[in-house]
Simulated scan of single mutants.
Amino acid sequence: MKVVGVILAGGQATRMGGGDKGLLELGGVRLLNRVIGRLGPQVEAMCLNANGDPARFDGFGLPVVADTVEGFAGPLAGVLAGMDWAAGEGASHVVSAAADTPFFPRDLVEGLIAGGAGSSPVLAAVREAGRVRRQPTFGLWPVALRDDLRAALEGGLRKVVHWTERHDGREVVFVSSDAFFNVNTPEDLARAELML
């Protein structure tokens, strides 16, 4: 089993006023650097999924892969771009992480693999108010499913959970719900500073 990572940075950041949230600073360190620092030790290699001019990410030392599906197709398009890149790396699985979520677990990959790595996707989840809430931008994705995912996206599917359920998708509940806190607004960034 060879696991590589894809950092999803292809969102439009509309609630933050546009731009790349991963380039914002938290405690004097860019969010993207924080995510790279957490995911890097857990995987064999990483790429960054982002659209537009890749040169803006030159300083991060990662290959940049763009969505291959037309239009803004959401996080699944980024997962597919990561899967395509992972196939070229000879990887069996790709783990996705969001570029705006600086506190995700340092044992994310280990936990996802323990949850049933094989031919089914596995999503991270947390328990809040007695119910399980899946984190659709954090998952373990079998590269073998990339053609199926491409066909689903080209057919208009956009909801992560709708696709994972088609493939006996599983979830792994992580203890801390704050671990998946993501920075969507200026207020979220201020809260993240306090959490830091």
Rank of each mutant, 00 (worst) to 15 (best):
G139A: 15
G139D: 08
R150S: 11
D147L: 12
T137W: 13
W141T: 03
Q135H: 04
A152N: 10
R146C: 02
L153G: 07
G156L: 11
R127H: 04
V132E: 03
G156Q: 09
P142D: 02
A125C: 01
R127P: 01
R127G: 05
A125K: 00
A144T: 13
T137V: 14
G156P: 10
R133H: 14
L140S: 09
T137A: 14
D147E: 15
D148A: 15
W141M: 06
A144C: 09
R133G: 02
A129I: 06
P142H: 08
G130R: 11
D147F: 11
L149S: 08
R134V: 09
W141S: 09
G156N: 14
G155C: 10
W141R: 10
Q135K: 07
R127F: 00
R134G: 07
E128Q: 13
G155L: 11
R150H: 10
L145R: 14
Q135W: 00
D147P: 03
R146K: 13
L123C: 00
R150M: 08
P136C: 04
R127Y: 00
P121H: 02
E154F: 12
W141Q: 04
L123G: 01
A129T: 11
L140K: 09
V122T: 06
R131I: 12
T137I: 06
R146Y: 03
G155A: 15
L145I: 06
D148Y: 09
Q135A: 00
E128C: 03
G156W: 09
P136Q: 07
L145E: 10
A125I: 00
P136Y: 02
G155F: 12
V126W: 00
P136H: 07
T137D: 13
R150Y: 04
P136A: 06
L140N: 07
E128S: 12
R150P: 05
E154K: 15
R133Q: 09
L145N: 09
V122Y: 02
R146S: 03
A125R: 00
E128F: 01
L123W: 00
L140D: 04
A152Y: 07
A144V: 14
A129P: 01
T137Q: 13
R146N: 01
R146H: 05
A144D: 11
W141F: 03
A151E: 15
P121M: 06
P136G: 13
L140W: 05
D147Y: 09
V143C: 02
A125G: 01
D147R: 15
A151D: 13
